[in-house]
Design a protein around this nucleic acid. Structure first.
Lengths: 281, 281
DNA sequence: GGCAATATGAAATAATAATTCCAATCCATA
DNA sequence: TATGGATTGGAATTATTATTTCATATTGCC
């Protein structure tokens, strides 16, 4: 048998889809069933699967043979392997990571801890994002002539990624950082037709808060990403997001903040394209 | 048989752990094996499992019976059910996010897309991290007098977070960035007693590659985080990590890279503390 | 140390499941 | 519409696998 036998599920899947047209009716029927109910194939017996799919066991074996396997059993192995390779359930895995991290078993534990913290944060924000706030922020930012990006210290990486992405999307932006200590001057150029994305988490970098205050007094609308409603940033912001980042070893994850920041950025880009399109039309 | 038979894996697990002490030796042996290798129980045959666990098939059946099942087959069902269920929750949720993101239903979809990309990346790296490389990198960095951090453009946010964290941990470091265009001079100070963390993904920023080349010619050891073994960074590095980041809307996630970067940083901090402690003692 | 109760190993047996085979049916083509 | 080839259904066969049984070993207790 020199025919190439699919060894992994993805190859198998592709092969089946390719041949779908040329397969006899009943074989096609079991093929469809297999792709729709891979778990059943993995666990069932030839008889039970055949029954669920509405064919004879022999058809199931012919199906396997058509694909180059020597019988149902070898086909089934591929479906089982797929389940094995899939990682354990999310919660189980997270718990395991956290456990390993907590018992402090060497350096690997540190890595696991950060992965767990990031996953937790993402999980958390994905359920909590307020969609109205999100839309409001996008609208506000899409109208801005220049988007100022304001963040220091721990939040600075997010700001720099926002600036990078905005640049890529050809949206005029200004990262408020200055080796020459000219932040105040930079800020003074901002007008109500601009907008600000400000990011700060407890303990809030005083410079960020102060700059946010100044800029809000110039009536420049602020979108804030912060960690609680008591955040001093919230009071200056037109729209603000509460992001709870899990921490590990004293360093908080940035994954949720990053995801939100990127989503904001790209959504603004998209909104601008839409608006520009409409204006032209 | 009015004994309560555990129906789901968690209950079963608890039951086994409770009774562990009171089980006969071989039964305890298979019990431990079952909890350690649940996948094998789900897929194997009584004979194969017994062989792997180093017991007789009959012992396996006795184990099942002790737990209230009427045979190995019914016990196995619980282990199979577990596999079925665990696939549904997390992966389905992720798939749902991705699907929503792909069908492009509004701005919320963009957010979902980034969350999904970040989760996928974390998921991926958590299974793939090479522990030997990780240890090697930590050892190498812990010995360095100064840690240079090198990354541009998309990878720059990671570099800035590393620099922030290293600073917090009081580890001497130098982020290679210079508004004044003095990168080359900065690099020229690096010696073989220092070390570099370099981060670059395709399309590799030419400046990063060039600087990595120069610095490696000065015999400064480099730890690289990059995206494939073909990466030009890999050839200059003493140790390198392959990180596959999922992307969305043209922007790759940074979550896995961030987690790895933070883990490296904190592990280096810890290793230094340990070493310092030993030296004192 | 001896005895009973319990646990274990190994092979025989029963059960279950996969595969094969052949007759019946379907389908395309002349 | 007749004919050959492909496809299908269903039962018979073969294989694999779970379970049982019984002899042997181990353990705890008097």
């Amino acid at each position: 048998m020199d025919e190439r036998v699919p060894r992994d599920f993805e190859t198998l899947r592709t092969t089946i889809l390719e041949r779908r047209q040329s397969l006899p009716k009943r074989i096609a029927q079991i093929a469809a069933y297999a792709l729709d109910n891979p778990d059943d194939i993995a666990f069932g017996t030839a008889a039970s699967i055949a029954a669920s799919a509405g064919v004879q066991p022999s058809t199931l074996i012919r199906f396997a043979q058509q694909l180059g396997f020597d019988g149902f059993t070898s086909l089934q192995l591929v479906f089982r392997e797929r389940l094995r390779e899939r990682n354990s359930s999310y919660d189980e895995r997270l718990a395991a990571l956290r456990a390993k991290a907590e018992e402090g078993a060497g350096h690997r534990a540190i890595f696991d801890g950060f992965v767990a913290a990031a996953s937790t944060s993402l999980n958390d924000i994905s359920g909590r994002l307020n969609e109205d706030h999100f839309e409001a922020a996008i609208t506000l930012l899409a109208k801005a002539e220049t988007i100022y990006v304001l963040a220091k210290r721990r939040s600075y990486p997010v700001a720099s990624y926002i600036a990078y992405a905005l640049g890529k999307l050809k949206i005029r932006n200004q990262l408020i950082e200055s080796a020459a200590g000219l932040n105040a001057e930079m800020i003074s150029f901002a007008s109500p037709r601009d907008a600000v994305i400000a990011i700060s988490f407890s303990p809030y970098a005083p410079a960020t808060i102060e700059e946010a205050r100044v800029i809000s007094e110039q009536r420049v609308p602020i979108v804030a990403i912060t960690d609680s409603s008591f955040s001093p940033l919230a009071q200056f912001a037109k729209v603000w997001f509460e992001v709870a980042e899990a921490d590990f070893a004293g360093f908080r994850s940035l994954s949720a903040t990053m995801a939100l920041a990127m989503a904001l950025t790209v959504a603004v880009g998209e909104k601008r394209r839409d608006t520009a399109g409409k204006r032209k039309a």
